[in-house]
C-alpha cells in the first residue's frame, strides 16, 4: 500500500475503517442477540458471569472507594472555598450531585473498569485465540459469543452499575467527612440536603450512563481480544488498542448523553 498514490491510500484506509465499523456493529448485534438467549435459556455461562462480576465488581471496590472518597473531598474543599464568596454556598449540594452522581461517578468508574477489566478481558481472549482455545469451543459446539462474550458483557454492565452506586456513596460520604473539618454540619442535615437536591433524572442519567459505558467497555475489550490473529505479540497491542478506543468511545458517549440530558 506504501507504493500507492496518497489519494488511493486515503481511500483504501477509509474503506477499511468503514468495513471495520460495520464488522464491529455486527459483532455488537450478535452480542445483543446472544444476551437475549442467555436470559431465556439455562446457560453454562452463568459461572463465567459470576467470576466476571467478582473480578470487575467486587475486586475493584477498594480502588473505587479510595478514588471516590478523594474526589468527594476535593469537590467539597473547592466548593466551600469558592461558593460562599459569591453568596452561593447552598449550591454545593447541586454541584456534588451534578459532578459525582451525573458525571464523574459513571465516567471514572468506566475508566477504571476499562483500565483494569477491559485490558484483562482483551488479553485473556487474545491468549485464548493464540492457544486455539476459541477453535476448541467452536469444535465442541459452544458459541464463543454466547459462552465467552455474553457473560463478560452482562458482568461488566452489572459491575458498572454496582460500582457506580459505591462511587456515589463513598463520594458523598467523603465530602461529608471533609465538611466536618471546615464547616461542621449534622449527618442528617447533610444527607437531607443531598436527597432534596437529588432528582429522579439524576439517578436515571447515572444509571443509563452506567449501562451504556459498561456495554462499550465490554464490547470493545472482547472485540479487540478476538481481533488477535496469530502472534502472541498482538495480545498486548490489542489490550492497548482496547483501552485507547474504549476511552475515546466513553468520552464521546458521555458527551452525547450529557447533551441529551440538557436538551
Amino acid at each position: 500500500m506504501a507504493d500507492l498514490p496518497l489519494y488511493e491510500r486515503l481511500g483504501a484506509t477509509a474503506i477499511s475503517k468503514v468495513r471495520s465499523f460495520f464488522y464491529a456493529m455486527g459483532f455488537f448485534f450478535e452480542i445483543l442477540k446472544e444476551t437475549v438467549h442467555f436470559f431465556r435459556h439455562r446457560s453454562v455461562g452463568a459461572g463465567v458471569l459470576t467470576m466476571q462480576v467478582l473480578f470487575t465488581g467486587v475486586e475493584a471496590l477498594s480502588v473505587i472507594s479510595v478514588l471516590s472518597l478523594g474526589i468527594g473531598a476535593v469537590i467539597i474543599i473547592q466548593g466551600l472555598s469558592l461558593l460562599p464568596q459569591f453568596g452561593q454556598g447552598q449550591l454545593i449540594y447541586t454541584i456534588l450531585i451534578t459532578v459525582i452522581t451525573r458525571e464523574l461517578g459513571p465516567i471514572l468508574t468506566a475508566f477504571i473498569i476499562t483500565a483494569r477489566s477491559g485490558t484483562a478481558i482483551s488479553t485473556e481472549i487474545g491468549n485464548m485465540v493464540i492457544n486455539h482455545e476459541i477453535e476448541a469451543y467452536i469444535a465442541t459446539g459452544i458459541n464463543p459469543i454466547a459462552y465467552i462474550v455474553v457473560p463478560r458483557f452482562i458482568g461488566v454492565i452489572v459491575s458498572m452499575l454496582v460500582l457506580n452506586v459505591y462511587f456515589n456513596i463513598f463520594g458523598l460520604l467523603g465530602s461529608y467527612v471533609v465538611t466536618q473539618f471546615f464547616h461542621p454540619i449534622g449527618f442528617q442535615a447533610y444527607f437531607s440536603n443531598i436527597l432534596a437536591t437529588l432528582g429522579v433524572t439524576d439517578i436515571l442519567s447515572s444509571v443509563i450512563k452506567s449501562v451504556v459505558f459498561g456495554a462499550i467497555v465490554s464490547t470493545v475489550a472482547t472485540f479487540h481480544g478476538f481481533a488477535v490473529d496469530r502472534a502472541s505479540t498482538e495480545v498486548p497491542k490489542s489490550a492497548i488498542r482496547s483501552v485507547g478506543q474504549g476511552f475515546t468511545l466513553l468520552i464521546i458517549a458521555d458527551a452525547i448523553l450529557t447533551l441529551v440530558y440538557y436538551v
Binding site: M128, N131, H132, E135, A136, I138, A139, T140, G141, N143
Partner: peptide
C-alpha cells in the same frame, strides 16, 4: 444445525487446545 453438527463430531487438536482457565 451447527450446534447439532458439532455435537456429532469431535476434533483433537495438535497442541491439545485445552481451556486454560
Amino acid at each position: 444445525e451447527e450446534r447439532e453438527l458439532r455435537r456429532r463430531n469431535g476434533f483433537v487438536f495438535q497442541d491439545g487446545a485445552l481451556w486454560q482457565n
